[in-house]
């Protein structure tokens, strides 16, 4: 051992590794790289939720679906619609205000449909479009978020550069290189393509009750009142408010919070021996709803459920 310590090469290597350790300790522990120009993709989960709520609230005001989509892409979600739907459910579970939840569900629905629920209020002939929703860098670095906006390519021109280390994790699947300035408006003399108008029901369109079926399946939630709301083409619609009233008070439910069961699906658990009135926002009123009693194969009674189907005429 003593002979080894006297070996000059060993001494040099030992010094090198000690120095390396000190350098790493300093750079990782004492003075690590600090981010001051981070992007939203690395926000903490609760702040991402807040970011989505604000995007949805902004969208509810502007109805600019492409911009909302571009903003959501900043968060790096693999499936924006699912994230929004899941967040809407979390917000319901937390008992948050319905006026905050509804825009989130509406944005999820509109993203899924690919069209804004209401047309933009103004389409000027000369459009000053804001091309810098800040989801790109301009340093000729590949940026991996797949562009889905229909902004003309000439608007995606670079004038400034800003790259940040935090872009690095996003480089795993490069698809397109954007060159773009941060928040610099460009006056475009050409029309920005608008979303193709597809007739979709407005939130206030009337619904009528087209089906009322007992659900007697053992193993399901007792007293489960299920709703399915569709448009005239039998396409399920999210974001419709359903008001359930009983002597105990009033409850609100929204379609679309359980997308795995359908965008137009909502449910509510009825209590036994309680009569409910159902009102669909801007539409049908169904009084005298109560949980039916079902019998299993042994003749024993149990609380069944109901399925109400509403449709726009």
């Amino acid at each position: 051992m003593r002979q080894l310590l006297r070996n000059q090469i060993f001494q040099l290597l030992l010094a090198l590794f000690i120095g390396l350790g000190l350098g790493l300790a300093y750079s990782w522990r004492v003075s690590p790289v600090t981010y001051v120009d981070a992007n939203p993709a690395i926000l903490r989960a609760d702040f991402k939720d807040q970011y989505r709520v604000v995007i949805a609230a902004s969208y509810a005001s502007t109805h600019n679906l492409e911009r909302a989509r571009a903003r959501l892409q900043l968060l790096g979600d693999t499936d924006m619609v699912s994230e929004l739907s899941a967040q809407a459910q979390r917000m319901v579970a937390r008992g948050e205000l319905l006026e905050h939840i509804k825009p989130v569900a509406q944005l999820a629905t509109d993203l899924q449909n690919g069209v804004a629920s209401l047309p933009p209020t103004q389409i000027p002939s000369t459009i000053v479009s804001y091309v810098s929703t800040p989801f790109t860098n301009n340093n000729n670095l590949p940026f991996t978020l797949t562009p889905v906006t229909e902004i003309p390519t000439e608007e995606l021109s670079a004038t400034e550069t800003q790259s940040t280390p935090e872009d690095k994790p996003l480089k795993s699947t490069p698809t397109t290189t954007f060159k773009q300035t941060a928040l610099v408006p460009v006056t475009a003399s050409t029309f920005v393509p608008r979303p193709t108008f597809t007739p979709i029901p407005l939130p206030g369109a009337p619904f009528i009750l087209v089906g009322q079926d007992q659900v007697c399946k053992s193993g399901t939630q007792p007293g489960l009142l299920q709703f399915i709301l569709t448009d005239r083409y039998h396409k399920q619609i999210a974001g419709i408010e359903i008001i359930i009233t009983s002597l105990q008070g009033e409850d609100h439910s929204f379609t679309g919070f359980k997308p795995e069961l359908g965008n137009g699906y909502a449910d509510f658990v009825m209590q036994a021996d309680t009569v409910y009135s159902i009102r669909v926002a801007g539409g049908a009123f169904v009084p005298d709803i109560s949980a039916p009693m079902c019998k299993d194969s042994n003749g024993a009674s149990y609380l069944g459920g109901l399925l109400l189907t509403f449709q726009q005429p």
Binding site: A15, L16, F17, I18, G19, L20, G21, L22, G23, L24, A25, Y26, S27, W28, P32, V33, Y35, A38, I42, L43, R44, A45, P165, E166, K168, P169
Partner: peptide
């Protein structure tokens, strides 16, 4: 060694921040 450690820790493999 210190220089190599700093380069590795600051440039090659800096701390990746999440949850900012």
């Amino acid at each position: 060694g210190i220089a190599l450690g700093l380069i590795y820790g600051w440039v090659i493999d800096p701390i990746q921040y999440t949850d900012i």
